[in-house]
């Protein structure tokens, strides 16, 4: 699994892309992507276009990002979900906590 991240020109939006299996093996890289910014982002996009598999450790990582970004007030979109990935997010009710786009 690899993590790459990109901040928008105005610094307000952070996109984190996950390629490969999404699980705890890149926990530190995932956290660094949002914790080490000079100014915290206002909006977050998690791009799962290149991620086919995830497990519950990935769900924990998403929830940690959500808490960091302000909990109920967090603005996080999970985009380009594969159908099986979306299924996992729906079963665990994470679709109620995040905006999810296929």
């Amino acid at each position: 699994m690899s993590i790459s991240s990109l901040t928008s020109n105005d610094g307000r939006e952070l996109t984190i892309k996950i390629a490969g299996r999404f699980d705890f093996s890149a926990l530190q890289n995932f956290r660094n992507a949002y914790e080490t910014l000079d100014h915290p982002a206002e909006r977050y996009i998690v791009d799962l276009k290149e991620s086919d598999y995830l497990d519950s450790s990935a769900l924990g990582m998403l929830l940690a990002l959500r808490d960091y970004a302000g909990g109920d007030g967090a603005n996080i979109k999970i985009v380009h979900c594969k159908p099986d990935v979306k299924k996992i997010l729906v079963i665990t009710k994470l679709d109620e906590l995040f905006t999810i786009d296929m």
Partner: peptide, 15 residues
Amino acid sequence: VHKGVLYTILAELYS
């Protein structure tokens, strides 16, 4: 055709 879901099941049981 179920590989995404099967991965999740295996990953949970193994971990």
